[in-house]
Each structure stands twice: as structure tokens, then as C-alpha cells.
Design a protein around this nucleic acid. Sequence first.
DNA 1: CTAAGTTTTGCGGGTTCCCGCAATTCGGTT
DNA 2: AACCGAATTGCGGGAACCCGCAAAACTTAG
Lengths: 242, 242
Amino acid sequence: MRLLIAEDDKLHRAFLKGVAEEVLTDDLEMVEAEDGQVALDAFLDAPFEAVILDLQMPHVTGVDVAKRIWARHTSTRILFWSNYADEAYIRGITRIVPPEAVYGYVLKTTPEDRLKMAIQGVFQADQCVIDREVRGVQQRSSDRVSSLTDLEYEALVDLSLGLTDKAMAARRRVSLRGAQSRLQHLYQKLGLDKSDIPVGDWGPSFNSRTRAISVAISRGLLNADALRQEEADLQAWLKKKI
Amino acid sequence: MRLLIAEDDKLHRAFLKGVAEEVLTDDLEMVEAEDGQVALDAFLDAPFEAVILDLQMPHVTGVDVAKRIWARHTSTRILFWSNYADEAYIRGITRIVPPEAVYGYVLKTTPEDRLKMAIQGVFQADQCVIDREVRGVQQRSSDRVSSLTDLEYEALVDLSLGLTDKAMAARRRVSLRGAQSRLQHLYQKLGLDKSDIPVGDWGPSFNSRTRAISVAISRGLLNADALRQEEADLQAWLKKKI
DNA sequence: CTAAGTTTTGCGGGTTCCCGCAATTCGGTT
DNA sequence: AACCGAATTGCGGGAACCCGCAAAACTTAG
């Protein structure tokens, strides 16, 4: 079996290598990459059947890598291995996983034996193995009432990038009122109306626009990685627009 | 020598322990903590002369721990050990380090030999050892023109928490116009005026208020940890205010 | 085809925000 | 004492934002 390990932290990479060697006894060809780009290069050079991906890597994130890999071979089994169970990541992944693909999601904090079981499950038994903590977030993020729709998420992104209503309207090709309407739905979904406790005499405490970003970030709906990614997309769009 | 290691990641903790044992040959008493709170408890139980602190830990961050430690013993030498060189961390640390204290700041990505040198430098030679990458950020964050003053930083925090101008004014005990004025300075410092390229006919692209948060986050001036911390402070203030 | 649900749009007005101008205060300096 | 830079405050106007109401457009089943 050919296994690709993409992880920027030296220690974790070595650890993964050790565990994989221990669990996957049959003849194993392993390649390590300390960056998303070199992982992709290695894969395009000669495909792998199994991949372990860290999600947070500089430049090219794990989600990007997975997307490109699955675009070519949906049969490749991928085990995601991440620090956090941020909704930003979960959303990114569930958007790109092909219906028939096999994958796993394990947090770095889980004990070693569960990691071993995940490796076996995904790479040998063709099962999807997802940590309980992650599963909880995933559940919530596919729930009709508490989760954001794609449109609302788009609005959140534009908002967090600092765009004006007008700019959002232009970017998403809707009217000004349309953009504002999406924002309104977003505010509602994030529960901004309830949390606003007007204390004393100085009226409403929170500005919906900025408060939305605040709760989105502390909920892990958005993180610095995702923001940088979206910023790049925005710049690309701006350039094309000129 | 008594050494306390606070780090939530198992692998990194074990690694640190190994390196420390190797470098500090004289008789060594080591205690490990996987959380800021237990680290603090251990320290209050019996002080340490040397501490290695991860900055990002759940609940009680490394900066918090350092603050409490130095409040009791300024002679304790602390080595910070972190994933990122975010200005949010740097600022947090430089605010609390006593003038005579000895400390170090090493990134997790630096090679092992440099970590060893840092451990020796800080714990045995009483030198301050700071990684080059970190030093760069530190420089910038104490520069008069590009860095934020404390007032501007306060404004950034309030802004990112989602407060209105009025609420900021109440919290910081200034007039409404005063709060707005601080915001204005903040916007200027973040360079929001220059980056606003009005493209085509749909006018200004960016909303200063939200754009400020965006650039602050992507610059690492603010991160999710710091935000959660400040959110707690805000809630405490709100409670007291009622 | 119809019905229910979601999304978009226009209108309107009340609020908040952004910021230039000018006056004032408050350390710290020469 | 005179001065300077930084911070604060009031005023005022133009722009942006928030949102309720109601009508259209579009989607998705039954």
C-alpha cells in the first residue's frame, strides 16, 4: 500500500509515521510531505491509495489537497487529522467529499489507540471513522435550524472580509436589498436578536455587523485560515472585475 | 533545579521533557501539566525556578499563567513555546513581563538544536532568548508608527467584540465622539484608507468597521484565543454594570 | 398544476456610523 | 513660560446600515 502523510509539524509527522508502520503491517511505501504543495506534487507524480492529511498547513490547506486528490481519484481514502473541530473545517470537507469516498476525521488530542483504530478502519476496512467530538459538530452543521445555509455562509464570508453591502451585492450578483436580506437571515441564524440585552440607559449594546463576526469566530464557524483563503478569492475576483 | 512544563499536546510535552532531560544534566525535578490551571496549581503548591509554557491552552492560556507566576516570583525564568508569532501573543507577553525577568520565546517550528540552546540560555545562563521570527514581530509591535497604542488596541478589542460606539464609550468612560475618534485612529493605523480602491461604479468596497477586524485577524493582531478572553472580560464588566 | 417554502426585490424611515473642522485639555520638553 | 504632540469633545452633514412590510420570482415536492 502506498501511503502519503502530509503534516507540517515534525513531531506529529514522525508520530504518524511510527503508528502507521506499526498498524499497517503488509508491505508499505510511505512518503512524507511537510506542506500541502509538496503533498500535491507527490500525489500528481504517482497517485496514492491512502492519505493522512493535517488540515492546517501553510499556503495550501488540507482541504485544498483533499479536493484536488478526490477530483482525480475518488477511490483514495483520506484520514483527516486536525487540532480543532472547527465548523469552518467541517463545512469545507463535507462540501468536497464525493458520495462514494471513504474518509476519517480524527482530532490530535485523541488517544493513540483510537488513532490506530481509525487508520485500520479507513485504510483497511474501507469504513468512515469520525471522532465523536467531530461528529457532534458535523451534526449541528447539517441541522436545518442551527446551521448556516450556503447563502448565509457566503454572506458571513463577505461580511468578515469587510465588504460593504453594495460590494456584496455586486460580488454575488444580487440587488442591494438582496444582500441586506441575506445579512438579515444571517443575523437571525446567529441569534443576534436574542443576545442583545439593552442595559441601563445606553441602549443597544451590539452592532449586528461586527457582532456577527465575533460569534462566528468564537464558535469556530470561521477561523483565520478560512479567512485568509477567502481573502485570496476576493482579491482574485477584484482583479478580474477591473 | 525544579522545572515545570505546561503543554497540552502529549507529543510536544514528551518531546520537551526529553530535550530538557538531555540538556539540563544537573539534578532535575520535573513536573508536567497538560493545562494552564493545573500548571498554576502546581506552581502555587511549590514554586519553580524554571517554567516552559505553551501559549495556546484551553481555559487558562500561557500568558495568564505567566502573569500569575511573575506576580509572585519575578525571578522565575519562563520559556514560551508557541505555534505562532501572533502579535496578540507578543503584545500579551510584553505587557506582563517584569523589567528584571528572564524569559525566552521559541517557535515550535524551530529546529531542535536551537531549542536546546534556548533552554540552556534561559535556564542556565540567565539570558533572554528570542527567535528571529518572533523578534521581527516584536520590533514591529513596539514601533511608533506601525504598531497600535494601547488605546487603539482597546478600540480594536471592543470593535471585534461587536460593541456599538455608544457601548464602547460607556465601557471606556469617554464621550461618544471620543470612542469614534479612537476608532478613527485605529482605522488609520491599520491602513484602511489606502487599501480602499473604488472599483468601477459601485463605490467604496470596504466597510471600515468590519474591514478593521479582517486585517487585524489576518495580521495576527487578534486571534480566537484573545477574542474569547476579551469576551469573558466584557461579560464580567456587563454583569458588574447591571 | 398546485401548494408550500425559500429567496429576491422595492420602498421607506429611523438609526448608526464616518469623518472634517475647530476648540480644549493634558502631559512632557526646551 | 512658551510649546508641542497626543487625546478628547462638540457640531453637523452625508453616507451606510438595519429592518418591517408586501409583492414577485424561483424551487421543490405532492
